[in-house]
Write a protein that binds this DNA or RNA. Sequence first.
RNA 1: GCACUCGUAGCUCAGCUGGAUAGAGCACCCGCCUUCUAAGCGGGCGGUCUCAGGUUCGAAUCCUGACGGGUGUACCA
Length: 565
Amino acid sequence: MKLKQQINKTIQQAFDKANINENAMSVSEATKPEFGDYQFNGAMALAKKLGKNPRHIAEMIVENLDLTGILAKAEIAGPGFINLWINPLWIAKQCQIALNDERLGVNKKENPVKVVVDYSGPNMAKQMHVGHLRSTIIGDTLANLLEFLGDEVIRQNHIGDWGTQFGMLIAYLEETGEDGSVCLRDLEQFYKDAKKRFDEDENFANKAREYVVKIQSGDMHCLNLWQKFIDISLGHCEDVYSKLCVKLTRDDVKAESFYNEDLPQVIEDLIKQNLLKESDGAQCVFLEGEEIPVIVQKGDGGYLYATTDLAALRYRANVLGAKRISYVVDARQAGHFKQVFKVAKESGFVPEDVRLEHVAFGMMMDKSGRPFKTRDGGTVKLVDLLDEAVVRAKDTIKEKEGYSEEEVERLAKVIGIGAVKYADLAINRESNYIFNWDKMLSFEGNTSLYMQYAYARIQSIFRKHHGEIKGEIIIGDDLEKRLAVMLLRFEDMLEQAAENAAPNHITAYLYELATLFMRFYERNPILKEGVDEATKMSRLQLADLAAKTIKQGLDILGIEVVDKL
RNA sequence: GCACUCGUAGCUCAGCUGGAUAGAGCACCCGCCUUCUAAGCGGGCGGUCUCAGGUUCGAAUCCUGACGGGUGUACCA
């Protein structure tokens, strides 16, 4: 249900009837309940343009406003605000439609596009650490969201599987042994050990360097070892993805090395476009207004990540056919992407109409506001963080008695992982955020637990209710109306979130929805004695739609729900 | 130095394309369980939106500058 659009249409009709030959600006949600459900603020802006009194214009609009359909009431306030009340009967009907619809009344986009979402991108040489968390879950949310709205989403996991450190790792893998899966159980340690050998033993170091050359020249034995290493390392990532309920699979992997063959061609094509200049021995693209050039080939002939990114960009635009390409990468690389996007457009690698965006996010900080590190200053492994989340979640479960051990385990997983993800997604992605266990695992405030609790409370009602649910939704009081309008806003909110690639729009909405439901639940009894049948049926259905909406919203965030908490 | 970004309640954060008295949560204080999950709900306290100008009928939001924090600044990714 595109609620705003519907209301805008009504306003536009009033414009036409009043002979105001302008496009009406969009209505917005009322800032307060007293101001109705929606408000139209366009009269003031028009007043100046038309040289008329804003209240007079507002009157003209209101006089011509159809109050027999969606809208029930309109009031002029202050200098020319038009406060709008939606017809409760209409609201009820729309909720009914949403409830009977698998997609909760959310339309699929009329003009879906292919979207590449590039996220996670772990380095195969090391274990995933907390630094990968945000990209992985923000990216997955964006992918889920666009998919739900009907776009054709192509997930791309641009894993780092190429570079000089792999020579060292593979040399060490061969040296240590037969079964890679054993020595690679802890990648971090393996990397450290290999590095130690590299620094200590000249022979080993030379061997490592040889391996780099061999891999790059396509030596089969080395490539096999390399492949084995990548497989195992990727397996680690998949464990993390599975724990995180992130949908990335091996099919989404398009590694750095995938673009290797195209790199010389990238250089060739830049030369053809007359964009390349040599500077200090390196091949560079100098962009207008940019202080530093984009270096695409080093003095020694090697390529850089800008080169790979260019290759990836044109592959995504031309081979995959993407019309929107979103890079979910931390904010520090803003400069890099700005430049690379510019080169991609100027060189014609990517057509003008393709939307390139850097979905930037801030850093994760510890409680004292410093970058998130272990006590000794090392990086925190993502698996460890997630495991701790589950352990901590288990401690928060109040009454474990009613559950089997497996159920507690399952609950702890849903709560713990949900808490970590929600806390991250609830923050405006561009700002840095402070990681705080107590806050994220709390039932209070804008947390996943609060949402899961709201959901479970509703499921509890349905466990207690027997018999079929029939009859229609009736909007009884103001609270029910606010809840219902909130439910109808779902699609508007999702669209905004998708447009801005902003998961926190979803969490903010869900929180507001859950809060409204809790209030409704406290004030308007459903199954208690004395509630007449029609009201009961109506409230059951409202509760049902609320639960389904919460579940669908959380599902987009990649967060699970349980029927009982 | 230059570029980017942020600065909102004691703390953590919202605030969409400018709109009415700037919103949540935590913390603190006060109420509400013999009936649907009180892990909840209601109420109170708490603000010079860093500062100074400008645009506008109207600015936390847009522009300029200052101050403060963060990040990035040619051959790592």
